[in-house]
Simulated assay, not measured.
Amino acid sequence: MISDDLDLRQLTADLKRMLGPGEPVGYLRGKSLMRDVLVSMKGFSELEAEELIDTLEIRGFLRFLGDPTERSVADAHWDISPHS
């Protein structure tokens, strides 16, 4: 369960800083990479991190720039914006 005290803007900024340039790429690979970063760098469980990534995507902090249903654009990048 995600704490109401968690600052999603700050978490997004931290996530963006922790990822390398040009990362993440691909819809599922990108979500997995972001989840793994939250687990290893922030100490969240895998379930908590997965829920956080979904929440950040729903609230507009994370946006996939391609279409995960179309193979030709499934390897697009993610936009990570702490200012949403």
Rank of each mutant, 00 (worst) to 15 (best):
I2A: 02
S3I: 00
S3L: 10
L6W: 07
L6K: 10
L6F: 10
D7E: 10
D7K: 08
L8I: 03
L8D: 04
L8Y: 12
L8K: 14
L11A: 13
T12Q: 04
T12D: 05
T12M: 06
A13N: 04
D14G: 02
L15G: 06
K16P: 01
K16R: 15
K16T: 01
R17P: 01
R17C: 09
R17F: 13
M18W: 14
M18Y: 14
G20D: 13
P21A: 13
P21D: 14
P21G: 05
G22A: 06
G22T: 06
G22I: 03
E23V: 01
E23Y: 11
P24E: 08
P24V: 06
P24D: 07
V25A: 00
G26K: 05
Y27Q: 00
L28N: 08
L28P: 00
L28K: 07
R29A: 10
K31A: 09
S32C: 08
L33R: 15
M34C: 07
M34P: 01
R35K: 15
D36G: 05
V37D: 02
V37H: 02
L38T: 04
L38G: 02
V39Q: 07
V39A: 07
S40I: 14
S40R: 15
M41K: 15
M41E: 15
M41R: 15
K42P: 01
K42M: 15
K42D: 10
G43R: 14
G43E: 12
S45H: 07
S45L: 03
E46G: 11
L47M: 11
L47W: 09
L47C: 04
E48M: 14
A49G: 12
A49I: 13
A49R: 03
A49N: 12
E50V: 06
I53F: 02
I53P: 01
I53L: 04
D54W: 07
D54Q: 11
T55D: 06
I58E: 14
R59H: 09
R59E: 14
R59C: 05
F61K: 02
L62D: 04
R63V: 06
R63E: 13
F64Q: 03
F64L: 07
G66Y: 03
D67T: 03
T69R: 11
T69A: 08
R71Q: 06
R71V: 06
V73T: 15
V73E: 09
V73Y: 05
A74C: 00
D75F: 03
A76Q: 04
H77V: 07
W78R: 04
D79R: 13
I80C: 08
S81A: 06
S81L: 03
P82R: 03
H83N: 12
S84N: 10
S84Q: 04
S84L: 02
S84Y: 09
